[in-house]
Design a protein around this nucleic acid. Structure first.
Length: 495
RNA sequence: GGCUCGUUGGUCAAGGGGUCAAGACGCUGCCCUCUCACGGCAGAAUCACGGGUUCGAUUCCCGUACGAGCUGCCA
């Protein structure tokens, strides 16, 4: 059996869409599972849409996610160039297109945009239409230019009239292809439009370049989104016209938003970069999208890239579209943060912490306090603001039913303990704990009755990461004492 | 509109002619606990509908409904 070769063929139009990332992931996994080759090819055939710097984003994303390609523009091997505009310059596509013209499987088309417009027929009635969907244009080229004689074609060519080259599809019979996920699919040839192979600017269309390059680069498995399922029969015709062997097709189910619509740029989490900016971890993103439309036979959910390579089998990719569930991604990200080794965690958490805290206190300790409490790094900020500055708060939070606390007994605890903290020479966590524990023991009260008032007094919040000891240690003696004094004052005023 | 595809809890999903229809997220409750979180335990919640085939259909077939994708000199 031939060695598997898959390819990731993005067009450099901006950030990496998660749908594309998942396709890249599956392509990588399919290749690596079998020890095959993963190729990167840049499809920059649309000069209009090309965005500067987008190629760098592609490189960076693949590197950051660990989807390392074996061949590509930066890793030339035997099948280069790996950039379609460079291949176009070499005349590769036009050469193959002409071959098709020779065999009668393609033809020159000189139709103007205006003529093409008149071909569009409207379906539905504007007045009756509920939405634009109900009023759609349908187009199918009428093979007008196929009737041109060879002389006419040459004449137009010599005159420099702009032209495209179109595929000549049969109008009768049907075309069948096999997809590994969706099975056999047949379409009537009458449905097949004579799609454009070479655009009037000389560039190939995506569809044509794809077929030519995949063949030339010996790609064995074509993995792509389900949105290409409908155009695949036209690919089949192309392979047939060339007499080339068709690759194995693996069409992946769509990824949708909560509204079950194809994930769009507007969704806010549609690109890898968006997700990173929102505090997600690369590994978690990869893990999560791997599970969108696929699951391993052992039912494992948390998987490293290596485990994915081991477990991945495209035979059990799903057909149904999958909703991108932000809530589950958040959970998974939290799992990765909890498991993360300390050094890397601190490194990633620190920028967030420094945005909130300017004081010279133990930031690392704060970081460790929130490690099991966050799902994304962005979550840190709102949790730790009280370390920087005591928030405005209402004394009603001293009252807690389960802790059996209220303003009166909280005041008592604070007044009893304040002098002890003031006296405390070595103000560290274990000493603070000892003071409080001793006091609780002497008074014969529950832990909660002693600790709730203190934690509340030094934080001004009902919920905090960490308990009284940790917070007091971090903010230090002076600040602790000041905050307790302030709370005592508030309590006195209200009683 | 046409073509193509899809439909197991709210979401991701396993399964597949006879099951109490896995698991995970989320949700609810309990335990742990100085709060929140972590961790542990428990619970509610699913085979779109209608016909077949069959002793038996969530599973196979056909329709219907609903949803989605495509219908570009975009990819």
């Amino acid at each position: 059996m031939n060695k598997i070769r898959t390819r990731f063929a993005p067009s450099p139009t901006g950030r990496m869409h998660v749908g594309n990332l998942r396709t890249a992931l599956y392509e990588y996994l399919i290749a690596k599972h079998e020890g095959g080759t993963f190729v990167l090819r840049i499809e920059d055939t649309d000069q209009q849409r090309e965005v500067e710097g987008a190629v760098d984003i592609i490189y960076r994303t693949l590197k950051d996610t660990g989807l390392i390609h074996d061949e590509g523009p930066d890793k030339e091997a035997n099948y280069g160039p790996y950039v379609q505009s460079e291949r176009q310059e070499k005349g590769i596509y036009i050469e193959y297109a002409k071959q098709l013209i020779e065999s009668g499987d393609a033809y020159y088309c000189f139709c103007s945009k205006e003529r093409l417009d008149t071909l569009r027929s409207h379906v539905g009635n504007v007045e009756e239409a509920d939405s634009e969907k109900d009023f759609k244009e349908i187009t199918k080229y009428d093979k007008h230019c196929m009737k041109l004689s060879k002389e006419e074609v040459n004449k137009y060519l010599n005159e420099g009239i702009p032209y495209t080259i179109r595929q000549n599809n049969p109008t009768e019979g049907s075309t069948t292809f096999k997809d590994e996920v969706f099975g056999e699919i047949s379409v009537d040839n009458s449905e097949l439009d004579d799609m454009i192979l070479i655009k009037s600017d000389g560039f190939p269309t995506y569809n044509f370049a794809n077929v030519v390059d995949d063949h030339l680069m010996k790609i064995t498995h074509v993995v792509r989104g389900n949105e290409y399922l409908s155009s695949t029969p036209k690919y089949t015709r192309l392979y047939e016209a060339f007499g080339w062997e068709e690759p194995v097709y693996v069409h992946c189910p769509l990824i949708t938003n909560e509204e079950h619509k194809k994930l769009s740029k507007r969704s806010g989490h549609s690109s890898y970069e968006d997700l990173i900016e929102q505090g997600f971890v690369s590994e978690a993103i990869i893990n999560f999208i791997a599970l969108l439309g696929w699951s391993p036979s052992n039912n494992q959910e948390i998987m490293s890239l290596d485990e994915l390579i081991e477990l991945f089998d495209y035979k059990n990719i799903n057909k149904a579209p999958a909703v991108f569930d932000m809530v589950k991604l958040r959970w998974m990200n939290g799992e990765y943060i909890k498991k993360m080794d300390e050094q890397r965690y601190i490194e990633m958490a620190m920028p967030q912490i420094k945005e909130i805290i300017t004081k010279d206190i133990d930031l690392k300790k704060i970081a460790m306090l929130v490690k099991t409490r966050i799902e994304t790094f962005i979550d840190i900020k709102e949790m730790i603001d009280f370390f920087e500055e005591m928030p405005q708060y209402d004394i009603s939070i001293f009252t807690h039913k389960k802790m059996k606390t209220n303003s009166e007994n909280s005041l008592e605890v604070l007044e009893d303990l304040l002098p002890k903290f003031v006296e405390l020479q070595d103000y560290n966590e274990s000493n603070i704990e000892k003071v409080i524990k001793d006091y609780i023991g002497e008074k014969g009260i529950k832990n909660g009755q002693g600790l709730w008032p203190i934690r509340t007094a030094v934080s001004g919040k009902q919920n905090t990461p960490g308990g009284a000891y940790e917070i007091m240690t971090i903010i230090g003696k002076e600040e602790s004492v000041n905050r307790i004094k302030r709370s005592i004052k508030m309590l006195k005023n209200s009683i």
